Simulated assay, not measured.
Amino acid sequence: MAASKSGKAGAADFDMTKFFDFEKMMGDMRMPGFDPTSLMEAQRKNIEALVQANKVAAEGFQALAQRQQDILREHVEQMQGLMRDAVSADTPEANAGRQAELMKIAFEKALLNMRELAELASKSQSEAFEIVNRRVMDSMEEFRQLADQNKGKA
């Protein structure tokens, strides 16, 4: 396997023809309309699409994890502020009113954060699915074109 720019071998660098010589294996079978090179190219494209979809999904997961970390940090900072406010309040009544208001704000922010995280996850999944879906559609078109080419040979 050849190494990519990062120095690591990846699926895009994978060459199945180094492991299997399909043309040689299928040479004796002589199936009309069967093009092993086209089959190998289609499989290479399939693998590339899966690698790309996995990359997009992994990047989405990293963005989601980073955002969760940011939310946790914001929440801890907010709780520290609440504790400072609770200690510095003039009267217990003022403190209770202030805490109730802050809890309401914290709850609303938590709901917004949950929605944001759900949207991030959904976007990542949609992008990965779109890559695979596009490859399936391209593959179907390639198959149709191959079938059309073979009509004239039969």
Rank of each mutant, 00 (worst) to 15 (best):
M137Y: 00
E74T: 07
A42M: 15
K109E: 09
P92S: 05
R84Y: 05
L112T: 07
L120Y: 01
M103Q: 12
A65P: 03
M114D: 05
E48H: 15
G97T: 08
E108S: 11
E116Y: 11
Q62P: 00
L64I: 09
D70Y: 01
A42D: 04
L120K: 10
Q69Y: 08
N133I: 06
E101S: 09
K45Y: 10
A65T: 09
N95F: 09
T91F: 02
M83L: 13
S38H: 07
S88C: 03
Q125R: 14
M114W: 06
E119K: 08
K55R: 14
S38I: 02
R67S: 13
E77H: 05
V56T: 14
S88H: 00
N54M: 11
E41L: 12
M83W: 03
E101A: 15
G81A: 10
V87N: 02
I71L: 05
I47E: 06
G33W: 06
A42E: 05
M40W: 03
A128V: 05
L64G: 07
A58K: 08
L117E: 06
S124H: 03
E101Q: 13
Q78R: 12
M40N: 10
E48F: 13
M79W: 00
G33Q: 09
T37E: 13
M114V: 04
Q52F: 00
A94W: 03
I71D: 05
L82M: 13
A106Y: 04
L82T: 00
G60C: 02
D85P: 02
M114Q: 14
D90F: 05
E59K: 02
A86D: 07
V87D: 04
E74L: 05
L120F: 14
